[in-house]
Design a protein around this nucleic acid. Structure first.
Lengths: 173, 173
DNA sequence: AAATCTGATTGCATTTCGCAATCGGTTGCA
DNA sequence: TGCAACCGATTGCGAAATGCAATCAGATTT
């Protein structure tokens, strides 16, 4: 499967890669959710992707050079999916997309806290995150002095919001 | 027509708005091509959108608050479409998208020169451009000292590449 | 040996897409 | 006045994509 190439415009070609309802969702779950296996992506996505569509998109993203697949050494039937550099460099786009959606669309508070932190962190945070992703998925050494990982920081913020909301929903704890 | 709201995730909701093959193309042509009329969008888009899809997407983008429609006073049957602030703030996303596509996808040289300049100009250039779009579409005053418009600058660069390529294709001129 | 989990695949109904033809109304020009 | 061209769509239709549930064979766990 390759690009239709309706035109050589960069925006058009980008849309041919992930201008559908699921490709970017899958990449989002791999990038921000740390998911690497088929079942994790299948059950972990909030939006409930169907298994045939997930299989099709994984195949397509591999053919486009956004993902690679390898056998999980610990589990003969498990496949592990990895982001390529091409996919990792989507982080700034996802950050902008999240920031835009947070402003203009009816996002839920707990799910937009990550977008907010990512926006506030700006390009330096994105770079740190991309470096961590390269380490996870490409095996490159980490060169930024680290502290907690960006993904863990975002996840902790998400959980804090969820906890606070649960508390305020039943204040007589 | 409203959002499906598969989830309240900002990225998911953004994809529900323009996660299809045409919505962003239409907005691209309005933003970078300065197109305001149905026929301009229909014939001007390199990718060749069908008229029923164009009509559907214009309607949808209006319902989502990205566009408004008004009668063209000079032409009883002409409608003029305007970008809202919601659409104008897509400029940084389009800039990133173009930059990403230029790096990773087989873009054509003449069509990627705009993306390159837009990337090089960075946020200050994007702001100037957005200010010009607000002036065109929302009637707000221009507050940045201007010079040639960003759109004209990008268009001139595009034409220069086209001219150079035509020249090198027939060098015996 | 049975139950569960793995990454998928298949069948099928519904929806969306892409394309061409066409529509009623407006405009510009002879 | 006549008439072709243009305006923003709408309609019909075949092809493709989507969503959903059921199922698969092999590997692993119990």
């Amino acid at each position: 499967m390759s690009l239709d190439r309706r035109s050589g415009c960069p925006i058009n070609l980008s849309l041919e890669v992930f201008g559908d309802r699921w490709s970017l969702i899958i990449l989002r779950d791999m990038i921000f959710g740390g998911r690497r296996h088929f079942r994790e992506l299948l059950n972990g996505s909030m939006e409930g992707i169907a298994s045939n569509i997930l299989a099709d998109r994984l195949k397509r993203l591999m053919e486009l050079g956004m993902l690679t697949k390898a056998d999980d050494p610990s589990h003969k039937q498990k496949a592990i999916y990895s982001l390529t550099e091409m996919a990792i460099t989507l982080v700034p786009i996802l950050a902008h997309l999240g920031a835009w959606g947070r402003v203009w669309l009816p996002t839920s508070e707990e799910l937009s806290i990550r977008a907010e932190l990512l926006e506030k962190g700006g390009p330096p945070l994105w770079e740190k995150f991309m470096d961590e992703l390269r380490h996870e998925h490409l095996g490159t050494p980490l060169d930024t002095a680290s502290g907690p990982s960006v993904r863990d920081t975002l996840q902790a913020a998400y959980e804090a919001v969820v906890a606070r909301k649960a508390l305020s929903a039943s204040p007589a704890a």
